[in-house]
Computed example of a mutant assay.
Amino acid sequence: MVRSTLVVAVLMLVLPTTAHRNNDDIFAIEGGDSESRDLQWELENWLGGGSGGLGLSHSEARSWATKEWWYMETCGASISYLKQLYSVLTHRFAIPYTRNEAIGLMFAYATKQLDPDQLYAMYHVLAGSHLGGQKARARAAELLEQGASPTELSNLYRVLKTWLPDREAQDTAMEAAAAGCEAEKFARTRVVSEAVTASFDNQAFRYAEDGKYYTASEFKDYFGSNWMAKWRASPVAQKVARDGRAYSVSQFHDYFKGGWLSYWHEARWATQRRIAEDGRIYTMAEYVSYFGSQWQQKWAKAPVALCKECTAASHP
């Protein structure tokens, strides 16, 4: 069925000038209002002086809402989720962010689909380290973006401090967690690279420069002595669970506990997508095709869109 000129015209008015949807992401608008416009209104109301709002001026609230609503919708961020993120940043951290700092970070973290509970858990582990509370806040988000598990970070530190000085144990634990290392495997080998290849039943995959996913063992075989650097720089592969959300292997391990491996095997690979600088949504394969050798760096910086198979973001 051909869309009417009126619907297309209205659609273009709704989308911000800096962001446009791909053809398969166009949504229908009925009755003059859309769910997306509802999100913009909800954002503006919450950020401003509405009931339980954050108290920004009308112009400030409207500016933030106008700028961010499309990205929030595309990244799968609801008002409830944003409130959880904001609460972590302003109330649960020992050194809380100010309101304005927290609002900016809240939107930035939402574009990376960071889980509020995981963010706090990671911060909690790091806050007791040599980093201190202030640096731990920023490092927590960075490690989550790299695919680190707060559970494994805590376990790794517990193992490492039995034979390494405290500061060295903490730094090594962060390095190992970012590489997707299981503490149990590390305890056996005491070598990060060997432990990574054995972690999570060899089911951890990352996307190499050619845009295809490989296990740590395959990275090691192909890249030789430089494989760990390549592995750390590569995006983490995800699968879509029964709940319609995309998770990494470490998240399957954390969320599904003892039965995680069977859930992992039955899950479909996620076709991950991100929002490029032109405001359009592209798959990883399209990033590889367009950006060539720079695709991994571009991908790491880009906001996360819902995967093609996903019905919701990976956070609550």
Rank of each mutant, 00 (worst) to 15 (best):
V2T: 14
V8H: 03
H20V: 14
E35G: 12
S36P: 03
R37A: 01
S51D: 12
S51P: 12
S59A: 10
E60L: 00
A61Q: 01
T66G: 00
E68N: 11
W69M: 00
T74P: 03
C75E: 14
C75A: 15
A77C: 06
Y86N: 02
R92Y: 10
A102Y: 01
M106G: 06
Y109H: 10
K112A: 09
L126W: 01
S129L: 05
G132P: 15
K135L: 08
A136T: 02
R139H: 11
Q146P: 04
S154M: 11
L156F: 01
L156D: 11
V159D: 14
K161F: 03
E168K: 03
E175T: 14
E175F: 15
A176Q: 10
A183W: 07
F186W: 10
F186Q: 06
F186T: 05
A198L: 13
A204W: 08
Y207E: 13
K212V: 11
T215Y: 11
F219K: 04
M228S: 06
Q238T: 05
A241I: 07
R242W: 05
A246V: 14
S248N: 04
F252Q: 03
Y255F: 13
Y255M: 05
W264S: 01
H265M: 02
R268P: 13
R273P: 02
G279S: 08
G279N: 06
F291D: 13
P303Y: 01
C307T: 12
C307H: 10
E309M: 04
